[in-house]
Design a protein around this nucleic acid. Structure first.
Length: 118
DNA sequence: CTCTTGACGCCGG
DNA sequence: TCCGGCGCCAAGA
């Protein structure tokens, strides 16, 4: 298990900030992290979660089309259902539950990154 | 250095 | 809607 680098920590901090019952896409996480000063793309987010996802609510991160990532489809579906999100087989309502961090929430994320807390 | 490999995304058909 | 194709980008081999 690789040790998380600085960018991983930033990505994890963003995911950790997603409220229960809300969703974001991999690209959203990449965008938020970039706004926080840690530029990266969706594929980088996917890898960070693949390596260290167990430390954060990874199931709140879904694909841009609202579909669940194949390798973790079942687990994600169960966890999301437990949070009251309707799971239609392989898809969820990303648009309806999408989380867009306010300026305040964004600065909180930045602070947690600086603090080194995930 | 090149090549493959993804928990991805966008655009066409 | 569902694919296929291509772009993207960092990590390993």
């Amino acid at each position: 298990m690789r040790l998380p680098d600085l960018l991983d920590e930033a990505i994890l901090a963003v995911v950790a900030a997603i409220p229960a019952g809300r969703l974001v896409s991999y690209a959203d996480v990449a965008e938020i992290a970039s706004q926080a000063g840690y530029a990266c793309g969706p594929r980088r987010v996917a890898r960070a979660l693949s390596d260290h996802g167990d430390q954060v609510p990874w199931w709140r991160v879904v694909q841009a089309a609202g579909t669940l990532a194949e390798p973790v489809r079942d687990a994600a579906g169960a966890l999301l259902g437990a949070e009251g999100i309707q799971v239609d087989g392989r898809r969820v309502g990303l648009e309806e539950h999408r989380w867009r961090p306010s300026a305040a929430e964004l600065s909180q994320v930045v602070a947690r990154i600086e603090y080194g807390d995930t």
